[in-house]
């Protein structure tokens, strides 16, 4: 891969970001996307010990729900695979048990959201359980996916070529993603994804910019987008190193 590449953020929030990467091959872009989905380890509940469950649901169903609760993942090096963190929950009806009711034994591993409903408990029903969270990868179970809704599109370059003939009804020209307009990046949501709104009465050309990809990345709350992308790149690097060492005699 060429060493020269360039990253520019279009939108940036903690859990949701859109950024442009220029100068990478489609293969590398897809590698990053796949690594974000499947290769970045995150914490998730893996075993649950039920002390009391008089709710209307089976233990196994509740265990699955608890497993799908996103947990914050500690910084690299704090944990290794097979380390466990215990979380406990004790809710008595009438009430709804939420992910926020989970009490963790480690400050670094907490439910990422407080408001994920687990089960609605009626009068006299009670849920008391203890759960072990482990570090694992999206490859092994979807509950360990740090990146949800991860994808990329080519950056598209727009140029107005000529005016449309007078009185001609303009056709809608739907584009999604981010366009480049004289070097400026414009998300298509700014003009309702319709180029005829931005260039009324003009004929426009649209072309993919080679080796420029606009990533849209959303995390489940385990960590920030920056953290997800850098960890994904690190996993690619470590696997590449592993391969390099394996083929050397």
């Amino acid at each position: 891969m060429s060493a020269e590449y360039d990253v520019e953020f279009v939108e940036r929030e903690d859990r949701d970001a859109r950024f442009l990467v220029q100068g990478i091959t489609p293969a590398f872009a897809n590698g990053i996307r796949r690594a974000m989905l499947a290769d970045v380890p995150t914490m998730a509940i893996d075993t649950v010990r039920f002390v009391e469950n008089s709710s209307v649901m089976f233990d196994e169903q509740l265990a699955l729900r608890l497993g799908l609760v996103p947990l914050t993942t500690p910084p690299v090096g704090e944990f290794v695979e097979d380390d466990t963190v215990t979380l406990s929950i004790d809710v008595e009806g009438p009430a709804t048990a939420y992910s926020g009711d989970l009490v963790s034994s480690d400050d670094l591993v907490q439910p990422a959201d407080e408001n994920v409903p687990i089960i609605d408990l009626k009068d006299g029903q009670r849920l008391e359980a203890e759960a072990d969270a482990v570090l694992d990868r999206g490859k092994d179970h979807a509950k360990h996916q740090g990146g949800v809704a991860v994808g990329y599109r080519h950056l598209q370059r727009v140029a107005a070529v000529e005016d449309l003939p007078e009185f001609e009804e303009p056709d809608r020209r739907i584009v999604r993603g981010v366009i480049e307009e004289d070097g400026e990046l414009v998300p298509t949501s700014e003009f309702d994804h319709d180029l005829s709104n931005r260039y009324p009465g003009q004929e426009v050309t649209l072309e993919d910019v080679p080796n420029s990809f606009v990533f849209h990345v959303e995390t489940d709350g385990s960590f920030s987008v920056e953290e997800l992308v850098t960890r994904a790149a690190d996993t690619i690097e470590s696997r590449a190193t592993e391969l390099e060492n394996a083929v050397q005699l």
Partner: peptide
């Protein structure tokens, strides 16, 4: 008794 369940 306490019942242990694997999430899978």
């Amino acid at each position: 008794d306490v019942k242990e369940v694997d999430v899978n």
